[in-house]
């Protein structure tokens, strides 16, 4: 464990806490893409299959349980909670995310570390996570004004993978055999997708103005 990875995991956890806070405090999920939340639940379920087979550390196990439980709870909340589901922007959240699932799964069948079910699902979860934010970014562009908590949620979600890139550089420099090309390349693509959001987020922070993504 190095400081970059810990910072990454804490930032990721923070993004989930901010999202839970927004939904719980405002009893609303307006501005949040259910499709992105479903994709993230799929990412965690596909990646953490080894939860019960390989014990790595208490920290690792706890974080996996937290990520799976929170992502499923958010999907449940947005689909079934009587009060929250009414505020879901169904007509704006129209990204065809099934293409993302199909495309990344095919890619995982072709590009993986080993042609075993667990490795294919792991690669699938890595590729899917890289594009999972797209429905959310499209929704933000469509809904125009972005409330603070939603903006912070997306910001922390993008920042965590940037910390992981620093972690991979650090591990590459300090560990003789460290090579994780699938995660590294996918992580760079993932962080790149946030680039324009980060730009507008920084502008809105500098001008102390409302975050507005161009349509």
């Amino acid at each position: 464990m190095n400081i970059f990875r810990l910072a990454g995991d804490m930032t990721h956890l923070l993004s989930i806490i901010v999202l839970l806070l927004k939904i719980y405090a405002t009893k609303s999920c307006s501005g949040i893409s259910l499709k992105t939340q479903e994709l993230y639940a799929l990412v965690f379920l596909a990646r953490y299959l080894d939860l019960f087979t390989d014990f790595i550390s208490v920290y690792n196990t706890i974080m996996k349980v937290v990520f799976i439980a929170s992502s499923l709870a958010i999907v449940w909340c947005m689909r079934l909670h009587p009060l929250v589901k009414r505020s879901y922007d169904k007509e704006l959240d129209t990204f065809r995310h099934y293409f993302l699932i199909g495309g990344t799964f095919v890619l995982a069948l072709v590009l993986n570390e080993k042609f075993t079910l667990q490795e294919i699902l792991w690669a699938f979860s890595i590729y899917l996570e890289a594009v999972a934010i797209l429905p959310q970014l499209v929704l933000l562009q469509r809904s125009g004004n972005v409330d603070n908590l939603t903006g912070q949620y997306v910001f922390f979600l993008g920042a965590y993978r940037a910390f992981y890139i620093l972690n991979w550089i650090y591990r590459y420099l300090t560990e003789p055999r460290f090579t994780r090309w699938i995660a590294c390349v996918s992580g760079i693509v993932q962080t790149g997708i946030y680039a324009d959001f980060f730009y507008y987020y920084f502008i809105s922070w500098k001008n102390n103005s409302k975050l507005k993504l161009p349509a």
Partner: peptide
């Protein structure tokens, strides 16, 4: 295989 022991990341 070496990839297994690197699955220590979340």
């Amino acid at each position: 295989n070496d990839s297994a022991d690197f699955k220590d990341e979340l």
